[in-house]
Amino acid sequence: MRRINFRPLVYALLVVYLTIMLLPFLWLLVSSLKTTPEMFSSPFSLPAVLRLSNFVEAWQTGVAKYLLNSLLVTVVSVVAILVVSGLAAYALARSQFPGRNGFYVLLITGYAIPIHTVLVPLYEMLRSAQALNSYIGLIGPYVAFGIPFSVLLLYSFFLDFPKELEEAARLDGCNELQLLARIVAPLSLPGLSSVAIFQGVFIWNEFLLALILISDDALKTLPFGLVSFQGQYAANWPLLLASVTMATLPILLLYVVLQRQFVNSLAGLGK
């Protein structure tokens, strides 16, 4: 039987596909260094002069502020998700108690609930609690909506966890808390980092809740900030694109550095 060598064809298609994937990024970068008239007269040429001032202006007009807000909200939410989901998943995976199965199913059904479906009452609830326009009003729902998926991932992680280690630690006189802090947590780093990366990307990019719950410009997160910029500088594409570039670069760099962990974190998903 003769085999046709498909390899060159596959390579060619792959190169075409990768180019399509890459071009928008390149165009973004090039355009963000132009002036507005340049953008209109010659959208595809290289900039005559590299207008780094677009970046300076975008940074000063708000990107710096939005970046900090996003960082704060993301870090706090992710840490809270790790603690809360970690504890819950460990309890579910390791011990027997009445109602365990029910709790497990209850927690993970949360994944099928889109944030949209609670938008109206969430807004009303936080309004009565005077928590609109506050970090905590944003972080609370982020943590809650992060739980189902994280519990799911960590639960399967803890199931594969060697029980012998824990038994040995118990024999050495560790109590449950010490066991968690000294043995389980350090050994669960791969699982926890999966969750952190996953939820981190999600919260960093979340837009809908921020749009509803925040109206104070000083508290806006990056995605919302970018949308405001879009309205404000609609005809000033270079400035807008400089902001988009700056909003994207940190997480893109982080991704390139942590590529392996990113990919491994997803491997957990499909196991």
């Binding site: 309890a91 108690f97 609830m125």
Partner: peptide, 28 residues
Amino acid sequence: SVHIASYAMLAPALVLFAIFIAYPLSNT
């Protein structure tokens, strides 16, 4: 005591779930 410990570990997740998902959902 292990039961209590397990419930205690589950509690934060359940409370957050109740406040930000279950309660608003019923309100919807």
